[in-house]
Amino acid sequence: MNELSQLRQAAFAPAHTADIADALVKSSGLRVEADRRRGRGAGLNPSGRFEEKRREALDDGWQTIEELEPFRTEVQVEKPRAAITRNESPDLSFDRSINPYRGCEHGCIYCFARPTHSYMGLSPGLDFESKLFVKPDVPKLLERELSRPDYKVRAIAIGTNTDPYQPIEREWRIMRQILEVLNKANHPVAIVTKSALITRDADILSEMASKGLAKVGISITTLDRKLARAMEPRASTPPKRLDAIKALTDAGIPASVMVAPVIPALNDHEIERILEAANAAGATKASYVLLRLPLEVSPLFRDWLLQNYPNRYRHVMSLIRSMRGGKDYDAEWGKRMKGAGPYAWQIGRRFEMATKRLGMVRRGLPLRDDIFIRPDGGGIQLSLL
Results as ranks from 00 to 15, higher is better:
R176G: 13
E143R: 12
K131I: 14
L132C: 10
I168L: 14
R173G: 03
E129Q: 02
L132D: 00
P136C: 02
V134N: 04
D137P: 03
I174E: 06
K135T: 06
V138R: 04
L146W: 01
Y151M: 11
K135Q: 12
G159I: 01
R144W: 05
Q166V: 07
S147V: 06
T160Y: 12
R154S: 13
L142D: 00
S147E: 09
F133S: 10
I156E: 00
T160V: 12
L132I: 15
D137A: 15
M175W: 07
Q166K: 05
A155H: 09
T162W: 08
E145C: 04
Y151G: 03
R148N: 05
K140A: 13
A155R: 13
E171I: 08
P136M: 02
F133H: 14
P136F: 04
R148S: 10
M175F: 12
E129V: 05
L141F: 06
Q166Y: 09
L146R: 03
V138M: 05
K131D: 10
E145V: 02
N161F: 13
Y151F: 15
K152Q: 14
V153Q: 01
P167F: 08
L132N: 09
Q166D: 06
Y165K: 02
D163W: 02
E143S: 05
P164A: 04
D163V: 05
D150C: 01
P139W: 00
G159R: 08
E169Q: 05
K131H: 14
S147L: 11
F128P: 03
P136T: 00
P136R: 00
W172N: 11
F128Q: 00
P167H: 07
K140N: 12
P164Y: 06
G159H: 04
T160W: 12
R176P: 00
R144P: 07
Y151S: 10
L132K: 09
L142R: 04
M175S: 13
K131L: 13
A155D: 07
R144K: 14
L141R: 03
A157W: 08
E145Y: 06
K140W: 09
P167D: 09
D137H: 12
R148C: 06
L146Y: 02
S147A: 15
F133W: 13
Y165S: 04
E169K: 06
S147R: 11
R173W: 05
T160R: 09
A157K: 08
L141S: 00
P136I: 02
Y165W: 08
F133R: 15
V153S: 04
W172Y: 15
D150R: 07
I158P: 02
D150S: 09
K140T: 14
Q177P: 02
P167G: 10
I168M: 14
I174R: 02
P136W: 05
Q166T: 07
Y165C: 04
D137R: 14
E145M: 10
G159L: 03
K135F: 03
E171A: 12
D163F: 02
P167E: 10
M175V: 06
S130D: 13
I158L: 10
R173K: 15
K131G: 03
E145L: 06
K152M: 11
Q166E: 06
I168A: 00
E171W: 04
V153Y: 01
E143N: 04
T162A: 08
Y151N: 10
P167K: 07
T160K: 04
R173T: 03
